[in-house]
Computed example of a mutant assay.
Amino acid sequence: MLFESAPDDISLNVVTVARPALHRVLTHSVAEGRAPDLAVLDSVWTHEFAAAGFLYALEDLNEAWVRGEYEADFLPPLVAASRYEERTFAVSGFADAAGLWYRRRELESAGIRPPGTWSHLRSASRALMKTGIPHPLVMPGGSKGGETTAYCLTAFLASNGAQVLGPAGVTLHSRATAQALRFLHGLVETGILSAEVVRYEWNRPIRLLAEAQAAISFGGSYEALALAESLGVPLQSLGEQVGFIPVPAGPRGAAASVLGSMVFGIFRQAGNPIGAMRLLESAVAPASLANVARSTGRIPARRSAVALAAPEVPFLAQTAGFLDRAVTRPSTPSYARVSSQL
């Protein structure tokens, strides 16, 4: 993506880091005085890195672009999440939404509509058990699932009007949270959800869905390409095999999704911050994002790019519709500790 969109007068030296090690590698690089000019980081680290003074406020590099393009065209929840003390420190290229994947054939064969509420999810799962699927619902449920577990749990809590953090601090002691956890516990007790989910790696649930060992899976929109490849279908035809919907509504809430992304940030140790900003602007240009979306199914973070790609990838049109209503993961410099506790 960066090589294809880089201006002709900018040469690139790209280092690839595995996602689980990325936070550690970036913080160590800053400590050693050799941070990259431009880096990709998880959006929930933006406040942590900004508060620590690691990143440039992008208004200092090109305020006209921030006001004229970023604030005008990018998804509002992502714009808000990239700001710290009223300044912009990161830019999302793509958006990820948490929700439920489901196999169309299994649900249609059992005469089941995609669930819209918790009670419907439970009754649909019970009906699917009768078709021979021992544990029809799957999700990442433990520390081995890493950030994917926190991502899915945050969306599930939001579907019952619960949140992880509020203005006064941690809010996991609420009645809405307790009700959500009791519901999940009940799914395990009835066999709908296997107790083994606490040992699943982050991508185990979606593999079980692709193998028809489950019919419904908590997950993220970013799994679209991997799911299409596992099912052996073109990305453009994925919607014929599976559907993707927000997490069904709980008794105290409404159908919900959590919006997340990886973002570009420019480090204060950058040798060429203006060049890094030009590269960032090129990488997130509408045509660049649309090209990547067509081949990967990723949802562009700006509306104009969605409009360019959606006619060729129906999945984008399906998921982009509920992004404006999605919530974001807690924005706090201490998010890494919050996530590990979830």
Rank of each mutant, 00 (worst) to 15 (best):
250 G>P: 01
318 Q>F: 02
170 V>W: 05
146 G>E: 09
73 D>H: 06
131 T>V: 09
27 T>R: 03
5 S>P: 03
256 A>L: 07
125 S>N: 08
57 A>H: 04
172 L>W: 12
92 S>P: 00
107 L>Y: 08
189 E>D: 15
31 A>P: 01
310 A>M: 03
38 L>H: 11
23 H>T: 13
61 L>D: 12
156 F>N: 09
17 V>T: 14
318 Q>P: 01
218 F>P: 05
246 P>M: 05
324 D>K: 10
118 W>T: 10
65 W>H: 08
193 L>Q: 14
263 V>F: 12
191 G>L: 06
189 E>W: 01
258 V>I: 13
209 L>V: 08
184 L>V: 11
168 A>Q: 11
327 V>Q: 07
222 Y>D: 10
237 S>H: 09
13 N>V: 15
277 M>K: 02
62 N>D: 15
116 G>R: 15
37 D>R: 05
143 S>Y: 03
235 L>Y: 04
87 R>T: 09
85 E>A: 14
106 E>T: 09
107 L>P: 00
171 T>W: 02
207 R>V: 06
176 A>E: 11
153 L>V: 05
81 A>L: 07
2 L>I: 04
243 G>Q: 11
332 T>C: 07
31 A>H: 09
331 S>N: 15
147 E>Y: 13
141 G>C: 12
341 Q>N: 05
7 P>Q: 04
288 S>W: 00
227 L>I: 06
203 N>W: 11
38 L>S: 04
81 A>V: 02
18 A>H: 03
106 E>D: 15
93 G>F: 00
38 L>F: 02
8 D>W: 00
102 Y>E: 05
233 V>K: 01
107 L>I: 00
62 N>A: 06
267 F>M: 07
136 P>S: 00
108 E>K: 13
42 D>S: 13
93 G>M: 11
15 V>H: 07
60 D>G: 06
334 S>D: 15
219 G>R: 06
244 F>P: 03
285 A>W: 07
234 P>C: 15
242 V>R: 01
128 L>N: 07
114 P>C: 08
84 Y>T: 07
176 A>H: 04
66 V>A: 14
235 L>D: 10
329 R>Q: 15
300 P>W: 10
159 S>D: 02
286 P>I: 09
257 S>I: 12
292 V>T: 12
333 P>V: 03
195 A>G: 14
300 P>A: 03
212 A>F: 02
297 G>H: 04
297 G>N: 11
47 H>E: 14
113 R>K: 09
134 P>C: 06
261 S>L: 09
46 T>H: 10
140 P>F: 01
23 H>Y: 12
86 E>R: 04
115 P>T: 12
253 G>T: 01
264 F>I: 11
109 S>A: 15
341 Q>V: 05
237 S>P: 10
155 A>S: 15
94 F>W: 01
279 L>P: 08
316 L>G: 05
238 L>H: 02
315 F>E: 11
289 L>S: 05
241 Q>V: 02
221 S>A: 08
121 L>N: 09
76 P>I: 04
275 G>C: 10
196 E>C: 13
16 T>H: 11
334 S>H: 14
184 L>I: 14
24 R>A: 15
308 L>M: 13
309 A>N: 13
329 R>H: 07
312 E>V: 02
260 G>V: 09
42 D>M: 15
